[in-house]
Amino acid sequence: MLNETVFLVPTSYFVILSAVLFSIGVAGVLLRRNAILIFMSVELMLNAANLAFVAFARSLLDQGGQVFVFFVMTVAAAEVAIGLALIVAIFRSKRSTDIDELNSMEG
C-alpha cells in the first residue's frame, strides 16, 4: 500500500534537509547571472519549502499541509510560465539572458 510511512525519522531531519536545499537555492539566485538558472534556483527553494510542509503535515497528521503544497505547485507553474515568457521577450530584444546586461528599463 502506498500510504505506508517509510520515513519514520525525526521531523528535524527533514527541517535540516529543507534548510540546506533552500540555502543552495538562495546561493544559486545570488551567484548565477543567468536568468534561466536563477529561475531554476527559485524552483529549488520552492521545493525545499514543499518538503518541509509535507514533513510537518505527516508529523501532525494534518492534510492541510499537503493541500498547501498543491497550491504552491500551482503558483510555481504559473510563475515559471510567466517568467520564461519574460525571458523569451527579453532575449528577443537583447539577444542575451544575462541579467547583468539588463540595466535599463527601456525595451
Partner: peptide
C-alpha cells in the same frame, strides 16, 4: 520523499507537474 511521507498524491503531482511539465518548459526555452 513525498511518497515515503504518506503523500502519494503529491508525489505523483510532483513528477507530472514539476519533473514533467515545468522542466520540459525549461528545456524547451533553453
Amino acid at each position: 520523499f513525498f511518497l515515503g511521507l504518506s503523500a502519494p498524491f503529491l508525489a505523483m503531482v510532483q513528477v507530472t507537474v514539476y519533473a514533467g511539465a515545468i522542466m520540459v518548459l525549461f528545456l524547451f526555452v533553453i
